[in-house]
Every structure is written in C-alpha cells, then in structure tokens.
Design a protein around this nucleic acid. Structure first.
Lengths: 248, 248
DNA sequence: AAATTTCTTTGACACAGATCAAGCGCGCGA
DNA sequence: TCGCGCGCTTGATCTGTGTCAAAGAAATTT
C-alpha cells in the first residue's frame, strides 16, 4: 500500500469526466458554481474503507474514478455486496445521518464529495436536482431488482456470466471495439469480491471462470483482463434473452 | 373466481386509510384536490395480473388495500419476486412507458391509480411530491438491498424467518398485541409465492415452515395464520442481530 | 354429499455448490 | 536472486436444497 495516489482530480465541474451522467447532469452554470462551493475531492486506495456501516456520514457524493462497493456483513462474517458503484454513481442518502452499508474502494477511487447539509439545502431550492436524483435512484432500484433475479434463481455459471456482462456493459462506451461483437475489459474485482457480489464462494467463482474460458465464452490475459469474443454468447450464458441486457 | 369484489373504496383522499404514508403524505388540501382530479380506484381479485411486464402502463399509483407483488420471469420459467407491495407502497415509474415487471395481485387488492401524464406534470409543478417519491424510492432501495443479503447469503430456514419477520413488522401496528412480544398475522402469500420471493422451491418452504413450527419458533392456525410467541427469537432465527429488524 | 381442483405436506434420492485442503505463480521486498 | 505472501486454481469430499413422486387437506364445483 505504498503507491502514491496521484489521481487526476478535476479542477472544477466543467472538466469533470462524469459531469453529464452524475447528479449534476441537469445543472446550469450558476448551479454548478454553487456545487463547486460545497464540494471537495477525496482519493482512496484499493482496499480502503470509505465509510463504515453505522458511522456518521458527513457527505454525499459521486464516484468520479474507479470502482467502489456497498457491502453488508452478518455477525458470523457472511458478506453480501449490495451495490457496485462505478463512475457517476451516487453515494449516500440525503436525510439520513448514518451509513447503512460499508463503502469500500475496490480499486483506487476518486470521490466527489458534497457537504451533506448544504447539499440537502440545495436540493430543496433546486427541484431538478431532486428530480435527477430520483431518476438515478429508480435506475439503481431497477439494477437491484435485476440483481435479485441473479441471486435468487441463477446458477453459478449464469451468475458469473451476468456479472461479466454487467461490467462489460457499464464501460462499453470506453472499451468496445467499434464494428464488432468483441469486447475486452479489466475486472475491477478480486475473485473474493466477485463471490461476495454473487452469493458464491471464491472457489466456485474461480472454477466457473475457468469453465467459461475452457468453453471459449471468454478469454483471459492474466487474471484480470477479460476478452469477450461474442457478446451475444455471453448474454445467452447469463440466461438473459439475447438482447435484454444490451438494448433494453 | 366468482366472489364479488365489494372492497371498501375511499370516497376521497380525505378518508383514504393510507393517506399519511403514501406519495401524497406531504400534500396540502389544494394539492389533494388536484390529485382527486386525476385518480381513480381499481380492484383486483387475488391471482389477477395487474400489469404485464413490457405492457404499456397508463398509470402510476399506490396500493390501498391488499398485497401485490412484482415478479421477473426467465424464459425457462424460473421466477423471482423482486418486490412485495403492501398498502401505501407506490407502483410504477414516472418517465417510463412500459412496465419492467409483472405486477400481480397476491390477495384481493385495491389500487389508487393516477393517470400518468397529469401525475408527471404535477410532479414537476409541486416539487415536494418528487421529494416524497424520492424518500419512498430510497426506502425501497434499502429494502431491496436488505433482500439481496437474504437471497445471497441466508439459509432456507433463515430466509423463511426473514420473510415472516418482514411481514410481521410491516403490519405490526395493526396486529401487535399491546404489551407483549407476541404477534400474530395472516400470511398474504401462498407457499409458492413465498418460494418465488425467497429463491427457494415450494417444497423447501413447506419443510422449513414445518421445522420452525416443530421447534416452537412459530405456531400455525390453519395454513396461513401465523403466531409468533417470541419475536426476538424469530429475529435471531432470521440471522439478524437481535433488534436490527425492528428498531433500526 | 361426491367429485374435482388447488394448495400443502412429506419422503427418497440426486446434484450443485460449499467446505476443506493442497499447491501454483506472480509481484515485491530483502 | 531468493523467498515470502497474496491472489488464484484445482482436487476430494460433504451437505443443503432441488427434483421427482405420492398422498393428505381444504376449498370449490357439480
């Protein structure tokens, strides 16, 4: 853990890479200026805990760079990831004092934090921020419900394929090779984190990844870089109907 | 299916039993009058489908009476319930054309439907409706995430205990016997519906209910009426820490 | 009241995934 | 260069839950 975190932090909202997809997507210049007043950036190294469940949360914010996760833990140590936060995703709940989940940096992460009190005030004054947040929350709710199907009814192989297709889809715009069905991307999760997300053990995750590789559904370069020669095939393995994930 | 549905339908919002908990909780008299303009009540018998996934949805609304459920189905017939809608819960998504899930009446249901277009318009004009809806959506998101832990990491016995404690909690105000830890309530779900919610088969549901009964955690009168002599015990069986569910 | 249907319980057995255990391989510090 | 540690893979075995099957109980129709 001795790497220096020299993450590129945006100078202001204008040059923020997630501006058009985050809470502030609908904001005008003057509102962005207001947000600039109440925000600060914070970096976290992979593995660091950003907030502990139950802890007082003095900010809400957005992931700017990297991947973090929400996890719930039972007394006996069983863990379930309940959210995967990619760039532009919102963290924290206006109107709540304490965090309901552990928030962990899964890779190196840059967060854009808004001081909670002023942000809440601004939400009342500028209704379309609340409306934008409602949109985003509804999207998250849909994602959570999609995930309930994965957890409740899919086989281990389908779970892995589902996770891979979700990650692939989420940064499709960045990594898709134009004019082909072929994708490649880096897994931002360890096998253990994948297991926590999927409700499996890390051994089962490893076995199923090997199986998908053996069957030519995916390829691997190293442990973390994934090649998807045929995205439709991957979706079929995920148990989704052919275009469900990509086009819905 | 030949019962006559003589459900008591509220004459207006003023006498609506869920008024103070639903979307309209924060509305003033004039706003309620506006809502009265754009709403209508609709009744459904147990088992009926309220909306099919993919179908065009011309309303959003609230459950007034009874229980309905959101379900997702895979091509091969595997089903997962992704939401349990009790009185005051909101159905439908402003800004979306078609339903994302099947909505089914699990018991006889009365819905308060708002015509979608005018409701969306009203949401823009009266910001606190959007804010109230945001609150409710965030609550649902929390519930969904709680449920992900149940689906991903709990044993069959814990799943049953979790479901029972959630149902008990939701209508605690109605059925709690004052001054005791003892609850009783009617299950609004068939064994199959429970299985669909819990990611189990109905046989496993039946076996685990029998086991909980044998072990004195619950009692049964008929198949559907449940007695809970010791709520703490039930929560412990659910794998929640002692007061987690009830008081958090 | 008998017949039919639907919901539920219980049993026997199979199997997917968990658990326990060993070993690989790559990166990093010495 | 070596060795150490951590993330990952693979194997052997065990077990909780699914699957298949039969039959009981309750509600509804005839």
């Amino acid at each position: 853990m001795h790497k220096t975190m020299t993450a590129q932090i945006p100078r202001d909202c204008g040059e923020c890479p997630i501006r058009h997809r985050a809470v502030c997507a609908s904001c005008e210049a003057d509102e962005l200026a207001q947000l600039d007043e109440i925000k600060y950036y914070k970096s976290f190294e992979a593995g660091q805990t950003i907030v502990w469940s139950g802890e007082k949360m003095e900010f809400v914010g957005s992931v700017v760079k990297g991947v973090s996760s929400l996890t719930q833990t039972m007394e006996d140590g069983r863990r379930q990831m309940v959210g995967l936060l990619l760039p532009s995703d919102f963290v924290g709940r206006p109107g709540r004092e304490t965090a309901a989940y552990d928030v962990t940096a899964t890779s190196d992460v840059v967060m854009c934090c808004f001081r909670k009190k002023p942000f809440e005030k601004m939400m009342v004054q500028t209704p379309h921020i609340a409306q934008r947040l409602l949109q985003m929350t509804l999207d998250e709710l849909d994602a959570a419900r999609e995930w309930m199907l994965v957890l409740g009814r899919k086989t281990a192989r389908e779970k892995i394929a589902s996770l891979l297709s979700i990650i692939a889809r989420r940064d499709a715009t960045l990594h898709m090779k134009a004019g082909s069905d072929s994708f490649e991307f880096d897994l931002p999760l360890t096998r253990e984190a994948m297991a926590d997300y999927l409700g499996l053990t890390l051994e089962t995750v490893s076995r199923q990844i090997s199986a998908l590789k053996r069957d030519g559904v995916i390829g691997l370069q190293g442990k973390r870089h994934v090649l998807v020669p045929d995205f439709e095939r991957l979706l079929a393995e995920a148990g989704d109907d052919a275009d469900g994930g990509m086009l819905a």
